[in-house]
Design a protein around this nucleic acid. Structure first.
Lengths: 219, 219
DNA sequence: CATGGGATAATTGTATCCAAAATTGACAGC
DNA sequence: GCTGTCAATTTTGGATACAATTATCCCATG
């Protein structure tokens, strides 16, 4: 089966995007081998851009590539998920604190708009990308590019589990409530309240992800 | 001029290592283009592993690659250096706190040994790699692989400036004193003292790097 | 003399082909 | 029947060749 033709700046980057989505969608299970030849045939390209795409996904932590032994979907350990949430709390807490005094009417309205849009999303991928957009708008005024990049990097492996294990219904209400409370705390300029809500938000998400992780984790 | 033959697991990874060192040594200035053909000829390989090495260095933040336009040495901004130190303080502070109660006689002796070795290093590269080894041994008992990887990632762009701008003599004594004080605080199990020394250590380094950065930064 | 268009060259991205390593399977030996 | 060894096959890594894109330079034109 040959997929629809690739249209993007470069074949390799388009492939990376496609493969990312395919892995998130469960096309390959954690630990499963991705064969270069097979992928090349599937997308109608040669193995060169396939290799570059795989290397890209490796640098993102999505794959583990062993010399002459192929690329496998990496399998996040429960302990690492836990660690990632601790790191997120540090980084995002700092971003939130720095962004707090820099929000204005316009950025607050934008947050509300993004949250409305997020609550309308019905599929899990739309839900997650909407959540990312919300948090980026939340932290954007801090003007901390490296921290924001780090935020994305720390989320990625967590979202992979979220996308597979969670439906849009799971904890959606609490999730939305916390977002609304965050907006309110920022509007009031209440730093400690905002921090507490963020902490609550991440702890609750951690619990859900860990439950899903240990529930289906059979290695 | 053709460099000495490459000997490593894979040509691409060996090239990446060589290029990293070459860039750290100033073989290419920030903003300068790295030509694939030229590098390939220089190391006696084809352009394929060169491309993979360049992609690797891009993912490390060392290069910026534009489609059909080549790879350039990235130019860290002063604001980003500042941000990186703030992130380091968060991550390393957390690692230090978690490692504190887990050190024992053996790991403390290892720290002393690494520090002795570090103070013997006479060239700047040995100094920096020795400092990395010391800090990894310092944070190792925390058993936080992601945080440790993040530590390396946050150091890399800073060390590049350190390697270029600083000699081994600059602040070497204060540096060593702070390391010794850290070992003492850990031996005494004094968390707040250890944290304070780490903070002092990083702030002093930040000042030196920022001075070097703004001193030669002519963009 | 400045400026814009277009041919030419230089450089990157991709396909095809070859070499090296690893996996698989059969078979001999115990 | 199990195990170790070796050939055949599969798969990955790298080299060479070709296509696509961008940069450069020349010259016509205002």
């Amino acid at each position: 089966m040959i997929a629809t033709p690739l249209t993007a700046a470069t074949t390799a980057s388009a492939l990376a995007q496609r493969l990312r989505e395919a892995i998130d969608a469960g096309r390959w299970q954690p630990g499963e081998l991705l064969r270069q030849e097979q992928i090349a045939a599937e997308y109608g390209v040669s193995r060169i851009p396939v290799r570059e795409a795989l290397a890209q996904l490796q640098s993102e932590g999505l794959l583990e590539i062993a010399h002459y032994r192929g690329a496998r979907v990496s399998r996040p350990q429960a302990g690492e998920i836990d660690e990632l949430f601790d790191l997120r709390l540090m980084v995002e807490g700092d971003l939130l604190a720095r962004a707090l005094g820099r929000h204005d009417q316009r950025s607050l309205r934008e947050l509300v708009r993004l949250q409305d849009k997020l609550e309308d999303a019905d599929n899990r991928l739309g839900w997650i990308s909407g959540d990312i957009a919300f948090h980026e708008a939340l932290y954007g005024p801090a003007e901390r590019p490296r921290s924001l990049a780090l935020f994305r990097q720390l989320r990625a492996p967590i979202d992979r589990f979220n996308a597979q294990a969670l439906g849009p219904g799971a904890r959606k209400q609490g999730w939305a409530d916390e977002h609304r409370q965050l907006i309110a705390a920022i509007g009031a300029g209440d730093a400690s309240a905002a921090r507490a809500i963020l902490e609550q938000h991440l702890q609750a998400t951690r619990a859900v992800v860990l439950a899903a992780c240990s529930g289906e984790g059979d290695n």
